[in-house]
């Protein structure tokens, strides 16, 4: 995947983070299932795909030093079964940036597409950044 950090100041509503592509290999899914103490059913667990998107987002954001980002809420919709071995692209953009006193909130829109360009998952993550 492309790895490029974006400073917090650059983030404005509509800003798109660099897209990230993941091959959801058998090895990646096995590692995920081991981590969540889960069992497989032949498809990629939808939260494994979301986890890739959230990690891509975390890597792309260059936050002020010592900032602890808190995942405050998460909305998701799973649109399509994803077979093991599929490749997906995670697109993330800033929906809202809210400054409230000593607290900042970023609302990020997630869109995950398969190789055919069909959406497999959409969502919204709220990240709180207490200063």
């Amino acid at each position: 995947m492309q790895d490029k950090s974006v400073s917090y100041a650059e983030l404005a509503p509509g800003y798109e983070l660099p897209s990230a592509t993941y091959e959801l290999s058998e090895a990646l899914v096995s590692k995920y299932l081991r981590a969540v103490d889960g069992s497989g059913d032949g498809f990629v667990p939808p939260l494994a795909i979301t986890a890739c998107a959230i990690a891509a987002m975390a890597r792309s954001l260059s936050l002020p030093p010592d900032t602890v980002a808190i995942h405050a809420s998460q909305d998701l919709e799973f649109l399509k079964l994803v077979p093991i071995g599929a490749t997906v692209e995670c697109r993330i953009k800033v929906a809202q940036k809210i400054e409230r006193g000593r607290m900042s909130m970023l609302i990020m829109e997630l869109e995950i597409l398969d190789r055919g360009g069909e959406r497999v998952q959409t969502g919204k993550a709220t990240i709180a950044l207490p200063s």
Binding site: D41, S73, Q74
Partner: peptide, 15 residues
């Protein structure tokens, strides 16, 4: 819900 969750499921969560 099996596959009906994996494709068609919706979730709203607050941590």
């Amino acid at each position: 819900f099996g596959e009906n969750w994996l494709s068609g499921g919706k979730l709203r969560a607050k941590f």
